[in-house]
Design a protein around this nucleic acid. Structure first.
Lengths: 132, 132
DNA sequence: CGTTACGTTTACGTTCACGTCATCTTTCCT
DNA sequence: AGGAAAGATGACGTGAACGTAAACGTAACG
């Protein structure tokens, strides 16, 4: 496997984050870059995790919640209880995400309706150049 | 219209927030309770706004972003430029929300797939009591 | 051989969204 | 009248998620 390890700068450019952020994530045990002497090197695994981290953030999950979810993706089957616990947690999150999606759809519909109103008002004010 | 004004306590129980939160939202100009002497009274309008505020938060919008969006729902048609500006802002947010929904659907699919894996592993460990 | 670029650690600063006192009126109840 | 309950106004505290500055190491470039 071509696992090109990346420096912190390369990571920053690839994912549009700062070095501080990556070190912070390491301190919080969300990433585990290997060390070459003093320097960090980010593996393919770190890149996959970071992608999931950033996505989780966009959905409003805290870093701690994300950390626990990452375990589902990257767990060694060592102990069952842990796996089972994580699985249950994932079920909870899945339910949350589906609920959030449904509410989001509702909100989108409402906002669209509201915007139709706004568009109508704009047309009345300036019939020549309609909104949109 | 039966606009039963509500005290801060009633609001707190109705929406499951603290008094501090409501005063904070007033300070940030998201709510505009009227005053009866010293005391705040929350109108139907405040309740509608609060509902939108709490929903916006669940979608990860900041209070400042929410404040601007609320203007679309509660603007007097006084000046066109303002209305047009807000409309444009709403279009941006709508696009964001739709993108977020799509990404959320993607993430849900991925998580489900990942959980199928976890379930399989759990079955191997304890075939009698399956996961789910 | 200096300096420029990239990296490190340590540590204090900052923003957001409130929580948590402390202190003071107002109001309602017995 | 007296006391709890509800509400108000500061003002300081807090946790999350970084920003930012200081001080240092080292490796390559001209």
């Amino acid at each position: 496997m071509t696992d090109r390890k990346m420096t912190i700068r390369e990571m920053c450019e690839a994912f549009d984050v700062t070095p501080r952020t990556l070190r912070f994530y390491e301190a919080k045990e969300l990433l585990f870059p290997i060390r070459e002497g003093q320097k960090r090197l980010f593996t393919k695994r770190d890149r996959a995790r970071l992608k999931l981290i950033l996505r989780g953030k966009r959905f409003g999950f805290s870093l701690e919640e994300i950390r626990q979810l990452l375990d589902l993706y990257y767990m060694d089957d060592s102990q069952e209880t842990q796996l089972r616990k994580t699985y249950t947690l994932a079920e909870k999150h899945l339910a949350e995400m589906e609920a959030q999606r449904d509410e989001l759809n509702e909100a989108i519909a409402e906002l669209k309706e509201q915007m139709a109103w706004g568009a109508k008002r704009l047309e009345q004010l300036a019939p020549d150049r309609a909104a949109g």
